[in-house]
Design a protein around this nucleic acid. Structure first.
Length: 422
RNA sequence: GGAAGCGUGGCAGAGCGGCCGAAUGCACUCGCCUUGAAAGCGAGCAGUGGGAAACCACUCGGGGGUUCGAAUCCCUCCGCUUCCGCCA
């Protein structure tokens, strides 16, 4: 959420910046709602101030004076209540408008609104060469007996899957490996709920706009959402808290299940493990001094890149176009891993700087030594998703005989160096 | 799920209808003192909103009510603690 004053300040260039992502800012509506709210506050405050003075005077007033004072106090109270109503009405509309305005993309982002418009930052490693026709992870995994899509569908419907034997073990090893990397990079591991309140979802920006992307549960009168990413509970860890500025940056990591309805992606990636309703992911979250968030993003990105490099997976890093970044982000890098089975680079991690956008919604404040207050910057990156990484390993490390080589870094975690048919 | 009790500033803890945004202690910040530190002394020290500022308003778990006036009285919700029940 934005500070409406900052948004209205011409120096912010909010209209131009939001236009880059296809959002038309209604300046007039914003101005009039803000003015209506502030004027109601001022009038209400003045009425209350007078009311307080009269109340204090009642005590010392004579019996003759008293009735008139009490009557006046009652009048003022009613008038103040009317202003309160006006204020609330304006505030509700103002908030509704503000909650729907996306973050401002940084000027350094390339123009455009699709992944094709992204700017190539760097490429790591070489495309693996095969002296046979590389298969995709479904063919490889089903032949090895480690991926069972049919039974996943039997249990839960489309976009669910079952991993088996060495596949399940490799998956679990990835989680352990990613967490170990994160710990090495200085992140504190947290185990958090995967079921959260609407308020928590609003703090990071999933609600109110993207309810259709989420799985929702209801028991009695309680309404809880399944998290689409650990970003949600981990970022909200410090919601409604004030963090000493000198304690920043704070770095957290969590391994959680993630749940996404994938509404609007019908027919896309229907094959295999690429797009599932439920998947596991290690997430990295940083809370930073907003003045330093841009540098922090590079640090965060380097941590995600380090993990995928250790696995020896060929990938590239791109900076997303202004119109392609998420609602709450002001800049996003994607790490795209090469999938020989698709002959394409596919997103495996996304590292974003949200500036103070989420912190304003969630109430994550900072206090400097000199007493200056503000909002924290929040950042996050995948570090990494277990399923898509497993896909990349199967496809990049497949052998002519159908077996798959386990990356050296993972062997201590899997206990085997090779996946072979049972 | 049933019963009782409790929720006040970073913490502890007074206050129980106007003198209370709130005593006191601890912690913290700044200054004095000191070779340095501790101790001691002095000052400061909740947040949010409005305002250019002076300053004003709001907040004693949340919401609502009674009253000219509520941290204090009433209702309700939430949370915590203890006892019972159930349970991985």
């Amino acid at each position: 959420m934005h500070d409406p004053r900052v948004l209205l300040d011409p120096a912010t260039e909010a209209v131009r910046k939001l236009a880059r992502r296809g959002y038309v800012l209604d300046v007039a509506a914003l101005e009039s709602l803000l003015a209506a709210r502030n004027s109601a506050i001022q009038k209400g405050d003045a009425l209350r101030a007078e009311g307080k003075k009269i109340a204090a005077a009642v005590k010392g007033a004579s019996a003759e004076e008293r009735p008139a004072l009490v009557a006046r106090a009652k009048e003022l109270k009613a008038e103040a209540a009317a202003q309160d109503e006006a204020q609330q009405a304006a505030e509700v509309q103002l908030n509704e408008l503000l909650l729907g305005i996306p973050n401002l993309p940084l000027d350094e982002l390339p123009d455009g609104s699709t992944d094709a418009d992204a700017e190539l930052v760097r490429v790591w490693g070489d495309k693996p060469e095969f002296d046979f026709a590389p298969r995709d992870h479904v063919d490889i995994g089903e032949a090895l007996g480690i991926i069972d899509l049919t039974r996943g569908v039997k249990l839960s419907g489309p976009r669910f899957s079952v991993l088996r034997g060495q596949g399940a073990k490799l998956h679990r090893a990835l989680g352990q490996f990613f967490l170990a990397c994160a710990e090495e990079h200085g992140y504190t591991e947290v185990a958090v709920p995967t079921l959260v309140t609407p308020t928590t979802m609003t703090g990071t920006g999933q609600l109110p706009k993207f309810a259709e992307d989420l799985f929702k549960t209801g028991v009695g009168d309680r309404e809880l959402y399944l998290i689409p990413t650990a970003e949600v509970p981990v970022t909200n860890l410090h919601a409604k808290e004030t963090l000493p500025l000198e304690d920043l940056p704070l770095a957290y990591t969590a391994l959680t299940q993630c749940f996404r309805s994938e509404a609007g992606s019908y027919g896309r990636d229907t094959r295999g493990l690429i797009r599932q309703h439920e998947f596991a992911k290690v997430e990295l979250v940083r809370f930073a001094d907003p003045a330093k968030s841009r540098e922090e993003l590079e640090v965060l990105l380097s941590h995600a890149e380090d993990v995928i490099r250790r696995l020896g997976l060929h990938h590239r890093v791109v900076k997303l176009a202004a119109g392609d970044i998420g609602f709450s982000a002001q800049i996003t890098y994607d790490i795209e891993v090469w999938l020989p089975g698709q002959q394409a680079y596919r997103e495996i991690a996304s590292a974003s700087d949200f500036g103070t956008f989420q912190a304003r919604r969630a109430g994550i404040r900072t206090k400097a030594k000199d007493g200056t207050r503000g909002f924290a910057a929040t950042l996050n990156s995948s570090g990494l998703p277990l399923g898509r990484t497993l896909v990349a390993i199967l496809e990049q490390n497949q052998q002519a005989d159908g077996s798959v080589r386990v990356p050296d870094a993972l062997i201590p975690y899997t206990g085997f160096a090779e996946i072979k048919p049972e």
